Simulated scan of single mutants.
Amino acid sequence: MELLRVENLKTYFHISQGIVKAVDDVSFTLAYGQCLGLVGESGCGKTTTALSINRLLPPEGKIQSGNIYLEAVNLTALSDDEIRKRRWKEISMIFQGAMNALNPVMKIGEQIAEAVVLHQQVSHQQAWGRAKELFELVELEPDRISGYPHEFSGGMKQRAMIAMALACDPKLVIGDEPTTALDVMVQAQILNLLDKLRQNLNMGLILITHDLSILGETCDRIAVMYAGKIVEMGSTEDIYHEHMHPYTYRLLRAFPHIRGPKQMPEPIMGTPPDLIRPPSGCRFHPRCDYAKEICREEEPGMTAAGDGHAYACHFGGAFNG
């Protein structure tokens, strides 16, 4: 059953140098209990997509067109007061960098309880009890809710941020690089925790990252973004084993294989484009080894490659030839 539908979303930033087309015609859906991974290089539009869904864009950012439906409600049509009532309660976000997202002079329990009191109209004592329950849910010692952020390790802070995101039983949680700055073992623990909570609570989960390697065991579907657009989308198996876009291919080759030859991974040469003046045609063509004249002149549409698998390339799968 469908929980979230994003239709032709365009989010632009109006700055002194011009208009940055940070998200340019993005569409996808998410079902209850499903996990979608948004992956791509820094600056490709992943976080802007998440902030658009939450309606948390900075003043210079604006949703130019498109619709975002949470169940049957069009979030883009709501007033600021109406969307504020739905945050935390229906949709919440785990922000990147728990170290900076928590208030350093407030006890962590108070920060969680504050959201519960505000959105669920309960007493402070009830909210404090809810905070303890959430600490248990994210596998933290409940007595630690009286601690301050500086008394928590990086992994514990991240778990506290997850507890805060779950405070009001939202239907959709967005994790913006929730494992940033954590070591590999703690990364695995956080991802396993999110996956378990997603399945137990039947909530929709969107995971944002620039690292395809961490999504394999967590996500049901993956959307690959480049320069403000989704260039390939499909099941995790499709993206890993049947990928059709050269950018997806290069991303997969950019991290080492544990059981493969011991050699340096291949970098993607060049840099992401300037989104004030994006390239003509396919936005990836200046960095693509397989680009032809049509790639420079004509922007490719999405081509179906199977059930739920689509890609935006004139020569899909050319690297397999």
Rank of each mutant, 00 (worst) to 15 (best):
A113P: 05
G129H: 14
L137V: 06
Q121P: 04
E71L: 01
L3F: 11
G129T: 13
N67A: 09
G61S: 10
I68T: 06
I91F: 02
K10M: 06
I63A: 05
G109E: 12
S16F: 00
S79L: 05
V39S: 05
Y12Q: 07
L3P: 08
K62V: 14
G129A: 13
W88T: 00
L134P: 08
V138N: 11
S42N: 12
I15Q: 13
L36G: 04
L51P: 01
V117P: 07
V23C: 02
Q96R: 03
N100W: 04
L3K: 14
A31P: 00
I53F: 00
T76E: 04
A101Y: 12
N67P: 00
M93T: 09
Q126A: 15
S79T: 15
Q120G: 13
A22E: 13
F28P: 07
M99S: 13
K21P: 09
K21F: 06
G18N: 11
V39K: 02
N67G: 02
L4G: 06
A31R: 06
G33A: 10
L102V: 04
C44L: 01
L4P: 01
I68W: 03
N103S: 14
S16P: 07
E7K: 09
G45I: 10
Q64A: 12
Q64L: 03
R87Q: 13
Q96T: 02
A31T: 00
K89H: 10
G45N: 12
V73G: 02
L9Y: 05
I94F: 06
